[in-house]
Structures are given as structure tokens and as C-alpha cells.
């Protein structure tokens, strides 16, 4: 397994290199002045762009500029974000916890709900439950995330006045600002910080703002998982070992959950990478609509305001997450399925 991980780490470096060249190449189509913004670290510097173009040689050939950019990134300078009015690296740590929090709640729900729905609808194949959950899945599949989020907001915020948009209510935000000594922001995640400080009011307020975003994320992403789980389970249930188990007198529960489901989970692991990608895309729409200042919101905002250093950094970050996820999936795959050996 050692050489396998080593090879994959090499692959990771290769992919990150590729992604950076690709994105750098795409963004090279901008005028040198626009690209000069990537090297700005303070608002004062923004005033003399032409000088920056000369200083940083933005008219140089591609490979020279690319080499220089890699050097900067290696030195920890990802550039200046116009949207955040902060260096990209600093801003990243401000936005990251917001997105992490959303997915920290959504991911377990997606996994649990998807596996449960898929298993049940395979066991009760062509039953009303199966039809209902398939209709649910195909509708979830057809719903654009941003639209679903808007409709939820319209109904639950507009009509029922229950779940407001944003990350945190004004009162709670003021409270946190006014009590820096008794409320420390350990993680930047509202609910987690609330619990760590033993402050239930803050935690509950954070949770109240999370209900609709998490619901949106779960319903839109769960469809894929449910579909894969269902077809895997149907296939497993028709195999010989299931008949053997039944012949030995095993009850339904043992056959379904202990034998078939375990095997049906194997193909599910392979779509985990796709689920992560969906969750990243979903976070963008969810954060834009619910006005949560996380990475997705930052990215969308950066795209409309041509904030290129952010786009560069974000593509690299997502590439990193994606490749690491796939590595973990491959290792998990071998751990779950003893027939697979990583060499």
C-alpha cells in the first residue's frame, strides 16, 4: 500500500501542476493591467498598476510569468482579493469555516438519508415507496439548487417568517462583537463556537440560519447517492449468496442489512468523489441565495467582479480537495472490499 500512496501523491502534484497551468493559461487572456491585481497586497498599491505591470513583467512570455507566479504561491502570497479587501490567504480562512459548517451538517444527512432511501426502495422494489422515492430523486435531480433555495426562502422566510437568510442574526452578531472576552471564536463556525463556549443562544441562532441551506444541499445532492445505492442493492439482492442466506433460514433483516447492503455499499464509495464535487457546486448556489459569506459566495462574487487571484486560488483549492478525496476513496475502497489490493 505504501508505494500506491506514494504514486498517488505524485499524481496529486501532477494534477495540481496541470490545473494551475490550465487556469493560468485561461486567465492570461486578460490585459496585463488586470492581471497586475494578482500581485497587489495592499490597497495603496492598486493605484499605480502600470508600474506594477513593468515591475512584475506582465508582458513577459507565458512560462516566465508562470514560473514567477508559482514562486509567489510557494512563498505564501496568493495575491490580493478585491472582493474581500484582504489578501487571498487571510480571506480564505475567514470564508472557509462558513462553507465547512454547511457541509459538516449536510454531508452526514446526505449519506444517511441516501443510503436509507436507496436500500429501502431496492428492498421494496416497484412498491409505492420505491416509486415515491424515485420520483423524489428525479425531481431532486431536476431542481436547480439556486431555484430550490429561492423557493424555500420565499415560503419559510417570507410566508412563515421562520428561517431567515444569512449566517447569524443581528442581535447575536452584536452580542458576539460586544463580548469578545467571554465568547472566543475558536473555529469560525457559529454553531460549533456556540457549543464550545457553552452559549446555547448563539448555537441555536446559528442552527436556525442553517436549516434551509442544509435542507437545500441535502435534497439536491442526495438524489445521486440514492440512485446508485438502489441499483447496487437490487443487483446484490439477485445474487446467489442471498439465496443461500435465505435457504439457511436467515431473516429479512440479516439478509438485507448484514449481507446485501454491505456489498451494495462498494459501488457507492466510487461516486463519493462526484458527491464531493456536487457539494462544492451546491455550496456556491446555496451561499449565493442565502447570503452566507462562505467560499461559494466569495467565488461567485469574485467571478462577477473579475477578482482573478481568488479564481486562481479557488480552482487550486478545489483541485487539491478533489484529488485528496479520490485518494481517500481509493484507500477506503480497498479497505471495504478485501478483493481489491492496492499495489
Amino acid at each position: 500500500m505504501g508505494p500506491f500512496i506514494l504514486r498517488r501523491l505524485f499524481f496529486l502534484i501532477f494534477v495540481l501542476f496541470g490545473v494551475s497551468v490550465l487556469i493560468f493559461g485561461i486567465l492570461m487572456s486578460f490585459s496585463p493591467e488586470r492581471r497586475a491585481a494578482a500581485y497587489i497586497t495592499t490597497p495603496q498599491q492598486a493605484k499605480d498598476l502600470p508600474r506594477l505591470v513593468r515591475t512584475y513583467g506582465l508582458d513577459d512570455p507565458f512560462y516566465i510569468q508562470y514560473g514567477r507566479w508559482v514562486g509567489e504561491v510557494a512563498a505564501g502570497n496568493l495575491g490580493w482579493s478585491l472582493v474581500a479587501a484582504q489578501p487571498v490567504w487571510t480571506a480564505f480562512w475567514m470564508y472557509f469555516p462558513v462553507t465547512l459548517e454547511l457541509n459538516l451538517y449536510a454531508a452526514p444527512l446526505i449519506i444517511w438519508f441516501g443510503i436509507w432511501l436507496g436500500t429501502r426502495s431496492a428492498i421494496h422494489r416497484d412498491d409505492w415507496f420505491d416509486h415515491l422515492s424515485r420520483v423524489f430523486a428525479i425531481i431532486g435531480w431536476s431542481l436547480p439548487t439556486f431555484l430550490f433555495a429561492l423557493v424555500l426562502l420565499m415560503v419559510f422566510y417570507g410566508y412563515f417568517r421562520m428561517f431567515p437568510p444569512g449566517i447569524i442574526g443581528d442581535e447575536t452578531a452584536l452580542y458576539i462583537m460586544n463580548h469578545p472576552e467571554s465568547f472566543s471564536r475558536y473555529t469560525g463556525m457559529v454553531t460549533v463556537d456556540g457549543i464550545l463556549n457553552g452559549n446555547w443562544r448563539v448555537a441555536l441562532d446559528g442552527l436556525r440560519h442553517l436549516v434551509l441551506p442544509v435542507t437545500t444541499q441535502v435534497i439536491v445532492v442526495v438524489a445521486l447517492l440514492m440512485r446508485v445505492m438502489r441499483s447496487g442493492m437490487i443487483e446484490e439482492l439477485s445474487k446467489d449468496y442471498v439465496i443461500t442466506a435465505r435457504a439457511k433460514g436467515a431473516d429479512d433483516r440479516t439478509v438485507h442489512l448484514r449481507h446485501a447492503r454491505k456489498n451494495a455499499l462498494i459501488p457507492v464509495v466510487t461516486v463519493a468523489g462526484q458527491l464531493v464535487a456536487f457539494s462544492m457546486e451546491g455550496s456556491i448556489a446555496v451561499e449565493v441565495v442565502f447570503n452566507r459569506q462562505g467560499m461559494g459566495w466569495w467565488l461567485a462574487e469574485s467571478a462577477t467582479q473579475l477578482d482573478m487571484p481568488v479564481l486562481m486560488g479557488m480552482c487550486l483549492f478545489m483541485g487539491l480537495v478533489f484529488v485528496i478525496t479520490n485518494l481517500v476513496i481509493d484507500i477506503l475502497y480497498a479497505a471495504i472490499d478485501p478483493r481489491i489490493r492496492l499495489v
Partner: peptide, 17 residues
């Protein structure tokens, strides 16, 4: 390499460019 970036993110970067 192209697969490593989610569709929406990569497409957004291209539209920006």
C-alpha cells in the same frame, strides 16, 4: 487535470476570462 475542477467553477473561470 480538467476533471479536478468542478464544472461550475471551471466554467465560471472561463466566462470571466
Amino acid at each position: 487535470v480538467v476533471f479536478a475542477v468542478p464544472t461550475l467553477v471551471l466554467a465560471m473561470a472561463i466566462v470571466v476570462a
